[in-house]
Nucleic acid binder design. Structure first.
Length: 517
DNA sequence: AAGATATGTTCCC
DNA sequence: TGGGAACCCTATCT
């Protein structure tokens, strides 16, 4: 592994809840004893040996799901681009395609600026939410404001520029907050879709909330009748909030009148969850949906009824996210529980099969928020995507779960970002729409990542595969919360005492959204 | 410090 | 088609 230079600025960290210390690191001998038996054969082992996980040889590879080898020697583990086939050449049919020809065809020189990777923890709020974080959104106009939702339905507003300006609203939803979108006409208010079956509209300054829709007006009538909202997006041109439920139905709500328009439309297999909705950023008539029926589907908003989808993009398992590319809206990126990212290079081309399938570990785990690969909204080539990684890698003796940056045009791993202090999986990741900032949600905590010095990045990129660590050199063997609780000073910055995420008591202060730009 | 539990999807009967 | 066990590279609370 490349030796990294010592960080120059310490992150600013807020520890929200002063609970008992993390589980202590049990010795490797203890861990050896705890090896799990996953098949009946004696002599087979499965479990951690130190920071390395050993597979049971009877099981198919945990990463690519193909039998015949174990995860340790899976070719996809060595190189993410392994087995990724370049998209076949198509005839140009559309003026926009000319631009994409450059990105797709190998014989045309690519115009691809260097990727900027936010790889160093700048500040964090530890144990901010009371349950795991489920979604993140940057404020559209106030820089430095991050909105977060959690499994309990709570909504966090954090000004990470002023690290201690944060608040959590707890009375908006009663269970999982699945998706959030800002009101495009008033960026002080936010829509959220929850498993409690309601869409909320919240004033972020005051926390006052109204309900746009409630699918369970009569309360709990048993699991057969309880409807949960998952996918959500906003169509500004049509003045609609779009939401989808766990039974396969789409609902359209006019956000000017707050009235449901028309009846619910079955857009996925009846009884299956629709987890994602995305309106095309360029063509307002195009809608993309995905869900548990193993399909992502493209729809024409002008005529949307059961079975009227324009295309059905087949996957072998549940599709946990599907997004049009952020600038041209021409590409599609999906995340599926078969441990593959799929890319369609042009919605004007042949959609029968994806242009690329990239094997990547983002398996479903019932205890985690589902992973969703998201485009970098700032990348003009529309190829960089970010997604957290499920399986751990042994980094200097610590099992860490990095956040991966993947070039979806080649399948290559551009960067894996991790920090030795973050031992939990980071399934929720959001790239800032304007700044070179990554926000990640890991368990109950939030992290803000910024790029380290540019010169360092260039230097590291020359080493082909970048392995980036923040803060690690100082505290490699220390664990979170390990230190004595000797300070009331809860700000940790470049002039702070040390870099570790330290326990301290903090006060929650309200975050002002009247920004400062 | 070990054990319970929450939790979603798949698979099998 | 529906119910229940299996999954078993988690995190937290008791």
């Amino acid at each position: 592994m490349a030796q990294r230079s010592r960080r120059t600025a310490f992150p600013r960290v807020v520890i929200e809840r002063d609970t008992d210390t993390e589980e202590s690191s049990s010795s490797s001998e203890e861990k050896k004893k705890k090896k799990k038996k996953v098949c009946k054969n004696t002599g087979h082992e499965a479990g951690f040996r130190g920071a390395t996980y050993i597979d049971c040889p009877m099981k198919p590879c945990f990463l690519c799901k193909i039998p015949g080898h174990t995860t340790m020697n899976c070719p996809h583990r060595v190189a993410t681009e392994y087995g990724v086939i370049p998209a076949p050449h198509r005839n140009t049919r559309n003026s926009l395609d000319y631009i994409f020809e450059r990105q797709i065809r190998s014989d045309i020189p690519k115009i691809k600026p260097a990727f900027v990777i936010p790889d160093q923890v700048d500040c964090a709020v530890i144990r901010y939410h009371s349950r795991r974080v489920t979604c993140l959104e940057f404020h559209p106009t106030s820089n430095n404001v991050l909105i977060s939702g959690d499994k309990k339905g709570q909504l966090g507003v954090w000004d990470y520029g002023k690290v201690y300006e944060k608040t959590v609203y707890g009375n908006i939803h009663s269970c999982i907050l699945n998706n959030m979108r800002f009101n495009p006409r008033n960026d002080g208010t936010l829509y959220a879709a929850s498993s409690d079956g309601t869409i909320s509209c919240t004033d972020l300054e005051t926390g006052t909330s109204s309900s746009l829709m409630n699918l369970n007006p009569n309360g709990w009538q048993g699991p057969r009748n309880w409807r949960m909202l998952y996918g959500m997006d906003i169509n500004l041109e049509k003045g609609l909030v779009l939401v989808a439920d766990n039974f396969g139905f789409l609902y359209l709500v006019d956000f000017r009148s707050n009235h449901k328009t028309g009846e619910a439309i079955l857009i996925h297999k009846k009884g299956s969850k629709v987890v994602g909705l995305h309106c095309n950023p360029v063509q307002p008539d195009l809608l993309l949906s995905c869900g548990n029926d193993h399909f992502a589907r493209i729809w024409d908003m002008r005529r949307i009824e059961t079975g009227s989808s324009l295309y059905n993009l087949a996957h072998s398992r549940v599709v946990s996210s599907a997004y049009f590319s952020p600038q041209s809206g021409c590409k599609i990126l999906t995340t599926s529980l078969d441990n593959r990212l799929r890319v369609w290079d042009s919605i004007f081309g042949n959609l029968d099969s994806p242009s690329r399938e990239i094997v990547h570990s983002h398996d479903f785990n019932r205890y985690l928020t589902p992973f969703r690969a998201e485009w970098d909204p700032k990348d003009p080539s529309e190829s960089l995507a970010v997604i957290g990684r499920y399986i751990s890698e042994n980094y200097n003796g610590a099992a860490l779960h990095p956040i991966d940056f993947i070039d979806t045009s080649t399948g290559q791993l551009v960067a894996e970002v991790m920090d030795p202090n973050i031992t939990t999986i980071s399934p929720v990741n959001k790239l800032h729409p304007r700044d070179d900032i990554l926000a990640s949600g890991s368990s109950r905590s939030l992290f803000i990542w910024k790029p380290r010095e540019k010169s360092e990045i260039v230097q590291q990129r020359d080493e082909k595969k970048i392995v980036l660590c923040g803060m690690g050199e100082l505290k490699r063997n220390r664990k979170l919360g390990d230190e004595s609780d000797d300070s009331d000073d809860d700000t940790f910055c470049s002039k702070g005492k040390n870099s570790s995420f330290k326990k301290s008591k903090t006060k929650t202060t309200r975050c002002s959204l009247k920004a400062k730009r």
